[in-house]
Every structure is written in structure tokens, then in C-alpha cells.
Amino acid sequence: MKIIKIHHPLKKELNLSQPLVIAMGFFDGLHLGHQKVINSAREISEKKNLPLAVITYDHKPELVYKKMQGNDKRYITVYQDKMQLLNQLGVDYVFYINYSYAFQSQSPQMFVDDYLVQNFNADTVVAGFDHTYGDKNADMDLLPTYAKHRFEVVQVAPNLINNKKISSTRIRRNLEDGHIETVNKLLGRHFKNDGVIVHGYARGRELGYPTINIDYDGLQMMPSIGVYVTKVRIGNEWFEGMASIGRNETFGENNPITLEINLLNFNRNVYGETVRVEWLYKIRNQVKFTGIDNLIKQMDQDKIITERFFKNI
């Protein structure tokens, strides 16, 4: 897969040798709805024996026109993950566009003429029914008007679960609510994040539950504060574990949010290892305990639930 990074305005033509089937979208999460769009485009590309391309952006378009804070600034999938998933979906080219005010300000006709036709050599353009491309008048219903019969336009209907549209917004809401099983269902895979094992306060060891402390990408959304069943990959091995993401309120107020995972049947020095965490099930919310003994009793229960989860699957 070839990634072509683009800054508006284009300084030189790309001179692609073949027409392309192009899927358009920001694709944060690359959930089942996004996969439906890209798979539809791939089927067309295979039928026409043409390469498959994706147009996507380096950040959320909203950054251009509003102030964003907290989780609004974060992503379900960060850059490396998005590119890896696109590659797995059979994409040949990614046009990775810097979404700037200047890019957004071009007219829909200019975008179609300069990008889709002249530079991207579009044979067919595929997107979700609600996809827009900058201007308020730039929707999929109007795209055939701007195309002027120079390429085909295909709208993809929404993908539904429980009669509700699968969307990045829905996934973000469920992440914030801790509904990790719903998130995984909408993604079509386990929600995951990568990080590096770093030193913590070693409290878990004192409690009889030593943990790995993970420094994760601050640009990625995380599940809400609480205790979860997880799988962790270290090197090429996977381990079962229970994760706590939160402020450790039992040990004081206003602590930073940390991610700590107790791996079952594990006893190694793994500081500095890069790990992948997959989130499977939420056990409970974070609780401020009165006394260490009560915390240990709860952790004993958390471990039983974690072991039972893996035994049942």
C-alpha cells in the first residue's frame, strides 16, 4: 500500500498511470460501517480490475472550525492503526490530505475537478450516504452533478446494529460510558491501544497484585475509568489480565489517570517492552475504598471474574 501525503494546494500533478476506484471518508475507527464502504469499493475495483484508493485526512475536519477539548481531540484509531487496517482491507493507495482551512474553503466543483478528476484519476467514487467533502453543498446527492459524467458515484447505505447506524460518534459515546462489548461489536474487532511498559508506584506489588504500567498515546481515546478484562501482547505472546484505568483514588485525590494491568500467572521484568492491549469486558467502575484490606478483597473478586471470563470463552 502506498501512502501519498498531500498539502493543499497541490504543487504538482500526481500523474497516476491508471484510473482508480476511490473510497472517501475520515474513517475514524474503521468500524463495520466504514468497512462496508471500503469493501464495496474493493468489489468494484476487482470487477473493473483497477487499483483501490482511499481519500482520508490527517485530523478531524472539525479542528478547522471549532475549539476542541478532551475526548473531542482524540481518535478511536491513531494514524499507524488506521494505515495498518486499510492495508488489511486491500487498499492500494491512501491519499492522506492535510485538512486545512484552505482545503475546506475550495468549492465542491474545484475539489472534484482538481482532486478527483485531474490528480486522482477517479473512475468510481464510493462513500457513505452521509459523507460530505467540505462545503455545506458538498454531499453525496450532489456529487454526480459535480462529476459531470466523468466518473461513477456510488452511495453506500448505513450499516445497522440494533436498528441504529454504526458510527464513530456511537462508538465514542460507548467508550465514554464504558460499554466496551458494544464498542467491540461496532468495530468488528476488539478495541485496542498500544503503549510502553514504564515504572509506576509499585503499589500493586505491595497488594499482592503486581501490575505493568502502560504509557499510551494521548491522542487515542480510552475506555472510561474502571476495571476491565483485557488481553495483552508482549512480543509475540498474549497474556490474560485485569486492567485498571483511573486515578487510584484510594491512595489520594487528584492523581493522574494511569493504566495498570495485572497479568494472570505472570512474573517477568518487562520494563521498556512495547505492548498491545485489547479490551474485552468491563468488570466495574472505579471505587474509592476505605482501607487497603477492602481494596484487596475487591481485587480478589475482580480476579475471579477475570478468570471466569477467560474460562467461559
Results as ranks from 00 to 15, higher is better:
Lys12Val: 09
Ala41Met: 13
Phe95Cys: 03
Pro51Gln: 05
Ile97Asp: 06
Asn15Asp: 08
Asn119Glu: 03
Ile55His: 01
Met68His: 09
Val94Thr: 14
Met24Pro: 00
Phe27Leu: 15
Asp114Glu: 15
Met24Phe: 12
Asp123Cys: 03
Asn39Tyr: 11
Gly134Cys: 07
Gln109Asp: 13
Asn87Ala: 13
Met68Ser: 07
Glu13Asn: 14
Ala53Trp: 01
Leu32Ser: 01
Asp58Cys: 10
Asn71Pro: 00
Thr124Trp: 06
Asp130Gly: 08
Gln109Arg: 11
Gln84Tyr: 13
Asp81Thr: 14
Arg74Glu: 06
Ile76Glu: 10
Leu86Gln: 07
Phe103Asn: 05
Asn87Arg: 12
Asn39Arg: 15
Gln18Lys: 15
Leu32Arg: 14
Leu32His: 00
Glu43Pro: 00
Pro61Thr: 08
Lys66His: 04
Gln18Met: 09
Tyr93Gly: 03
Asn119Met: 05
Ile44Asn: 02
Gly128Glu: 03
Phe103Ile: 01
Gln88Gly: 08
Pro51Val: 09
Gln18Val: 03
Asn98Asp: 15
Ala23Ser: 13
Glu46Ser: 03
Lys48Leu: 15
Ala127Asn: 08
Asn137Asp: 15
Gln80Ile: 03
Val78Ser: 10
Phe129Gly: 04
Phe120Ala: 05
Val21Phe: 05
Tyr115Met: 12
Tyr75Glu: 11
Lys67Ala: 12
Gln118Trp: 02
Leu14Gln: 06
Val91Asp: 11
Lys82Ile: 00
Val91Lys: 05
Leu52Ser: 03
Met24Cys: 14
Gln104Pro: 01
Pro61His: 06
Arg74Gln: 15
Gln69Pro: 00
Asp139Tyr: 08
Asn87Met: 09
Glu13Ala: 08
Thr124Val: 14
Asn49Ile: 01
Tyr65Thr: 13
Asp123Thr: 06
Leu30Gln: 04
Phe27Cys: 10
Tyr57Lys: 07
Val54Pro: 07
Asp114Leu: 11
Asp92Pro: 00
Asn71Phe: 04
Gln109Pro: 02
Asn98Ile: 02
Gly33Lys: 05
Val21Tyr: 00
Asp113Ser: 04
Lys36Trp: 04
Ser45Phe: 11
Val78Met: 06
His131Asn: 11
Gly70His: 06
Leu16Tyr: 10
Val37Thr: 12
Leu85Glu: 13
Val21Ser: 05
Glu43Arg: 15
Ala127Met: 08
Ala41Ser: 09
Ile6Trp: 03
Lys47Tyr: 13
Tyr101Phe: 12
Lys67Ile: 11
Tyr93Gln: 02
Ser107Leu: 13
Lys12Glu: 13
Asn15Met: 02
Asn49Asp: 06
Leu89Val: 10
Ser107Asp: 07
Asp114Phe: 06
Val21Leu: 03
Gln69Trp: 08
Pro108Gly: 09
Gly25Val: 06
Gly70Glu: 09
Ala138Arg: 11
Pro19Ile: 00
Tyr79Thr: 14
Pro51Leu: 00
Pro108Ala: 10
Tyr101Ile: 07
His59Val: 02
Ile38Lys: 09
Met140Cys: 11
Phe120Met: 14
Gly128Pro: 08
Gln104His: 11
Glu43Trp: 00
Gln109Met: 12
Gln80Pro: 08
Val125Thr: 05
Val94Ser: 02
Leu116Tyr: 12
Tyr93Pro: 01
Ser105Ile: 06
Phe27Arg: 12
Leu89Gly: 08
His8Asp: 14
Asn39Lys: 15
Leu85Arg: 15
Lys73Trp: 05
Ser105Gly: 10
Ile22Val: 13
His8Asn: 14
